[in-house]
Amino acid sequence: MINIRNISIIISRDLQRFWKYRWWLAGLITMNLADLFIFALLFNNMVRRDLIPNYFLFIATGIAAIASFASAFSIGREVGVEIRRNYTQYLLSLPLSRIELAFGRILSGTVRGLIYQTPFIILLFILIDLPSPLQIIYILIASTLLSTTMSSISIAISTATRNFDMQATLRSFTYFILFFISNVFYPDALIRQRFPGVLYNIAYYNPVSLTVSLFRIIFKIYATPPSGYSELHIIMYLAIWALISMFMGGYLYIRNLEK
């Protein structure tokens, strides 16, 4: 039996710690804003208009998705520190079941992702347009599912080794694979044209790509949305990602804590 109150205590504790890392957050915001207001603004002058009419807005939707992804990933960093410092013994001694502990940590990452992402979504509303209430619900669901997936993946990676450099390298590697092999920087049609087959499928079903596509459909960034994509299809794929990664992440977290 899962006690919701225990999970909410873990979430609120992790949230308090999130604000403690305000300088780390400032760094993350700088990175995201630099991508938008430096990279995208300048690159907009080089991009072929026939492919992407407005690269700044094209990237803005990508950055909004990446924002939740990067922030949700922060929980992995902390879990890694706990494992290195043997803080896990203390966590295991708490009057919580292992499942409550694992899901509490995963959901903490999810909440962090959502909080961090909100200003970027509001920025999209200002830069582009205010979507309908139903579309706002779609955005909220997709962001929650993406954050859950990323939180679970980062926890699983961070508990895999006690070596700090290895943890950081594995997290960066996963981050950049998901970041580069996605449609954040380039249209889906181009990926399909240049990398048909396995790589296109990896990019297509990448949870970051799925969220970015949903944002681009809602904010009408695509001249023609990629075939097979609709809001509900995307949410279904994201839900599958979130469920699988949540169970995998939770299982690996508990297993590695008890080692």
Partner: peptide, 17 residues
């Protein structure tokens, strides 16, 4: 390798310069 083989290759196709 991913950066130069995938990212750079694709992004070079959207650049008109």
């Amino acid at each position: 390798s991913v950066q130069v083989g995938f990212f750079a290759y694709l992004i070079s196709h959207i650049v008109g310069q």
